Lab assay of single mutants.
Amino acid sequence: VTVHVNRYTYHFDNPEEAEKFAREMAKRLNMTVEIHGNTLKVE
């Protein structure tokens, strides 16, 4: 599972951890999480 935050890319083996990380980053940056299959984008 890949998480994109701005120009950074993070890889996770565990989808739940990836989503938790993405949501935490989105909250911190006041952004939203978009899910595209195995890719989560924080925008």
Rank of each mutant, 00 (worst) to 15 (best):
V1S: 05
T2Y: 10
T2L: 08
T2C: 13
V3C: 02
V3A: 01
V3T: 01
V3D: 01
V3M: 01
V5I: 13
V5P: 02
N6G: 15
N6E: 12
N6I: 09
R7L: 09
R7W: 11
Y8K: 14
Y8H: 14
Y8R: 14
Y8E: 14
Y8S: 11
T9C: 13
T9D: 06
H11Q: 07
H11R: 03
H11P: 03
H11G: 02
H11I: 10
F12I: 00
F12C: 05
F12V: 00
F12N: 00
F12H: 00
F12R: 00
F12G: 00
F12W: 02
D13Y: 06
D13F: 07
D13P: 07
N14E: 08
N14L: 07
N14Y: 05
N14S: 11
P15K: 14
P15V: 14
P15I: 15
E16G: 08
E17F: 06
E17A: 11
E17K: 07
A18N: 00
E19V: 09
E19N: 07
E19Y: 15
E19W: 15
F21S: 00
F21N: 00
F21W: 06
A22H: 01
A22C: 06
A22G: 02
A22V: 04
A22Q: 01
A22T: 01
R23N: 12
E24W: 12
E24M: 13
E24K: 12
M25S: 03
M25H: 03
A26Y: 02
A26R: 04
A26N: 02
A26V: 02
K27G: 07
K27H: 10
R28T: 06
R28C: 15
R28N: 08
R28V: 09
R28F: 08
L29W: 07
L29A: 04
N30F: 04
M31N: 03
M31K: 04
T32S: 10
V33C: 02
V33G: 01
V33R: 00
E34G: 07
E34N: 14
E34T: 15
I35Q: 09
H36R: 11
H36G: 04
H36F: 12
G37C: 07
N38P: 07
N38Y: 02
N38W: 01
N38E: 05
N38T: 06
N38K: 06
T39R: 09
T39G: 08
L40Y: 06
K41Q: 09
V42Y: 03
V42M: 03
V42E: 05
V42R: 02
E43C: 15
E43P: 04
E43K: 14
E43W: 11
